[in-house]
Each structure stands twice: as C-alpha cells, then as structure tokens.
Amino acid sequence: MSSAEYVAPTPGMPCWANLMVSDLRVSQAFYTAVLGWEFRQSSLGAGFLVGSAGGAPVAGIGERRAGFAPPSAWTPYFAVSDADLTAARVQERGATLAVGPVALGEGRAGLAADRDGATFGFWEGPAPAWSVGEGSAPARLDLQTRDVSEAAVFYGEVLGWGHDHGIDVVHRRDHVLVEREGKEVLSLWRGGAENSADPQTWPQWMVNFAVDDVEHAVAMASEGGGEVRVPTSAWVPDGSARVLRDPDGGLFTVSERRR
C-alpha cells in the first residue's frame, strides 16, 4: 500500500478492524472462501495479513504468539489524536488498558476493554483511506453491551465524540446511534451478558461485512469449518444479517451489499 493511500483519520471514528487468530493459514482460507478476500503480507511481517476486496483494504488478520491465546474476536480500532491521553482516559474511567500505547509502523496503538469487557483498540497516526459503510470497509459496527447509556458516555469521553468533527450521538428508545455528518457509523445495543456461557452473548463489538450473496457466504462458512449462529440480540437489524463463527471462534455478521 502506497503512502498516498494513507490519510489522517477523523478522531473518534473507527479507522480499522483487526482479528488475531491461532492459525493464520486456516483463517486466510476461511475468509477467502466466505467473503472473497484476497490477502497480502503487511509491513508488520509474515504474521500479519491485510485482507482486501477489489484491491482495497478491508481488515487485518494476525497470528497470536504461542502461549498467548485470548478469545478470538474482531476488534475495531478508533482514531485518536493522542494515544497517551486516550490510555489515561480508559484507566480513569475504570476500564482495562491491556496493551500500549506502543509504536507500530508510522503510528502508535493501544488495546483496551471497556467496563463491560468489550475489546476495542485505538490508533494515533496515519491510517488507510477506510470508512465504515463506504467502499470495501465493513458495512457496520455494533456494540452489544449491558447498559447502552453508560457505554455511550464511556466511549464519548474516551474517544472525544462531539460536534467538533461532525459526530453526533443519537439516543433512541432501545439503542444509541453514532453518526458523522448525518451518516450512521456505529450503533450501541443492550444485550451483553458478562457471565453467560455463550460467547455470542458476551459484551462485544460485532463487525458486519457486506456481501453480494448472504446465503452463499453462509454455505461457505459451514463448509469451511465455521458455524452459523442464531441471532440472539437486537443488533441484528430487521433480521437481515446472519451471525457467523469462524473456525477460531471469532464472531461476525454478514448482510446483503447495498446497491
């Protein structure tokens, strides 16, 4: 990827999505079959691949170090102006700073978990020209959380959501929408159960990928060692998205690409 394809992302907005897995080869084959991605090696080395569609980057998949095996989960990264300040805000508000901030390529990254345990990352520096809901980027990001209002306050304070960058936080009856310049970027829904035996109901960020044929993606997921899950929460809008589990346990959703 050339430097011309990197931009200064909008602070507070998602700027990337990433998945860490136990077997990079298996995951590469799975997401190639299900989502039609092509993969190339990244500047971070052989253990980290960038998935692309139509030549444009979609998301990253990296291999976990041996002996380091947290649950596999798709993780959104949010752009911030100051990674150190963001890390301090995370800790001040009773959440968990798991990693960083650490220097990574041309920027600095941190990994955290909110007060309910949902994992998210933050990034200071240039990022691919990538915006949720546009082009090859994921179609949506949805947070499943225990308390929607509390989560909206937490992320708003940590990430600096506000009108300065055209960001609006819209409270609905049972969920919260975050919009930029009138366009929905992500949503927060009630439904996370911290002590559930089912990983599908844990507080977590769900990444939605648009596909041309949902049923084909579902079939390929089943053939490729994945699993189709029954939606259990309101963040599956109008029943149009399908919940899939990859061979490493990572959950994500697919929906029909808008024409």
Rank of each mutant, 00 (worst) to 15 (best):
W202N: 01
Q204D: 03
E181H: 15
V185T: 09
G166W: 08
V148I: 10
V176H: 01
R190D: 05
W189L: 07
G182M: 14
W189G: 02
P199G: 05
D198V: 10
H171A: 14
V148W: 04
L188W: 06
Q200P: 00
D198P: 03
E150W: 04
H175A: 09
D168V: 11
P203Y: 04
A152I: 06
R173M: 11
G156Q: 04
A152V: 06
E157I: 07
V148E: 01
E184G: 07
F154M: 02
R172G: 07
K183M: 12
H171G: 04
V170G: 02
K183S: 14
L186R: 00
E157S: 13
G160H: 03
V170E: 10
W202H: 15
F154H: 02
A151M: 08
E184D: 14
V185E: 01
V158G: 01
G156P: 00
A151R: 01
G166H: 06
H163P: 09
E181R: 13
K183V: 15
G156M: 08
V176I: 13
E157F: 11
V158E: 01
A193S: 13
I167L: 04
G182S: 13
R190A: 15
H165R: 08
P203D: 07
Y155E: 06
V169L: 14
R180D: 09
Q204H: 14
E179W: 05
E157Q: 15
E184V: 14
D168C: 11
R172T: 08
P203F: 06
G191K: 00
A151C: 10
L188A: 08
H165C: 04
K183R: 15
R180S: 13
A197K: 12
W161T: 03
R190G: 06
R172Y: 11
H163T: 14
I167W: 01
G192M: 03
D147H: 12
E179D: 11
E194F: 11
D198Y: 07
A152R: 05
A197E: 13
E179T: 12
V148A: 10
P199T: 03
H171M: 08
D168K: 13
D168N: 14
E194K: 12
P199A: 06
P203E: 07
G192F: 00
S196V: 10
F154L: 09
V169I: 13
G166E: 07
L186G: 00
P199M: 02
V178T: 08
Q204S: 13
W189T: 01
E150H: 10
D164Y: 09
V185Q: 05
H165Y: 11
R190K: 15
R180M: 09
D198A: 12
Q204W: 03
L177Y: 09
E194V: 15
V148M: 07
W202Q: 07
V178D: 01
G182I: 12
G156F: 06
V170R: 12
D147M: 08
A197R: 12
N195P: 02
Q204Y: 02
L177C: 11
S149F: 05
D168E: 15
V148R: 02
A152E: 05
G182E: 13
